[in-house]
């Protein structure tokens, strides 16, 4: 996919008259890690939900991979190169760890899935992914039986297996022990080295400073500020927005 920036133009989303997103415009450079920060209710998760097709737009457009879209159909999002994790973890609970990863790898078409030809190759790729997040030993364990941290890592592994271009991470570090934080950070570095684009929604400012190249600050559905992490996070209006919440 060509190195075109991901552009979000005047994105709008309303819930019952309240603007969760009020004409937000962002330009994400490819191959970078962009942070999206902001107090609760600022529209961060809504933005992710719109980009991944979970919710329809009320206005605005998204330019990705040379295409201009005014809606993203959920099951087409990966074809535009987009994949995402969920803040509240949405794994396939009654499926084993291995199956959760294989799901991201196998043929999407009905016939292709029924008459799978590449089972061995998928298994090899799944093994690589699970070893990267440290869950290979637990591959036959049902997702519902994992610890919280392991479940978060499985979510990460699942998107890593997607081989998309744009990765949306919705608070992937919440509640993780330092060792696991490092595992996830390593995944980020690997993706960046592959030239992928990452959008990271996060509350932990330390991680934002450490990991991101560029930061966008949202407040009450609007873009409050943007820039390099250290510049933006020390801006007066940004600090006020957080204190005011």
């Amino acid at each position: 996919m060509p190195n075109i920036p991901l552009e979000i133009k005047n994105l709008e989303k309303q819930f019952g008259g309240v603007h969760a997103l009020d004409r937000v415009s962002l330009k994400i450079m490819p191959g970078t890690i962009s942070g999206i920060v902001g107090p609760n209710g600022s529209g961060k998760s809504t933005l992710i939900n719109l980009l991944s097709g979970l919710l329809p737009f009320d206005g605005g457009r998204v330019l990705i991979g040379g295409r201009e879209l005014n809606r993203i159909i959920p099951h087409k999002a990966p074809s535009y190169g987009i994949t995402r994790t969920f803040q509240n973890i949405r794994l396939f609970e009654q499926l084993p760890v291995l199956d959760n990863i294989l799901f991201a790898l196998t043929d999407r078409g009905v016939f292709g899935a029924l008459f799978e030809k590449h089972g061995a190759s998928h298994l090899a790729q799944a093994e690589e992914v699970l070893k990267m997040v440290g869950l290979w030993e637990k591959r036959n364990e049902l997702a519902i039986n994992l610890s919280y941290g392991q479940r978060k890592l499985l979510e990460i592994g699942r998107v890593y297996a997607m081989k998309s271009e744009v990765f949306l991470f919705d608070e992937p570090f919440a509640g993780l022990f330092p060792a696991m934080v490092e595992t996830v950070a390593e995944v980020f570095r690997t993706l960046k080295a592959q030239g992928k684009t990452i959008i990271l929604v996060e509350h932990d400012m330390g991680l934002i400073r450490k990991l991101t190249d560029y930061v966008f600050v949202l407040d009450s559905g609007e873009l409050l500020a943007e820039g390099k992490p250290n510049d933006v996070l020390s801006k007066k209006e940004v600090i006020e927005a957080y204190l005011g919440e």
Binding site: S52, H75, K76, A77, R90, L91, Q94, L95, R108
Partner: peptide, 11 residues
Amino acid sequence: EDEQAAKVFGY
């Protein structure tokens, strides 16, 4: 398990 999540992954 979760149809919407399944969709998001391209199915």
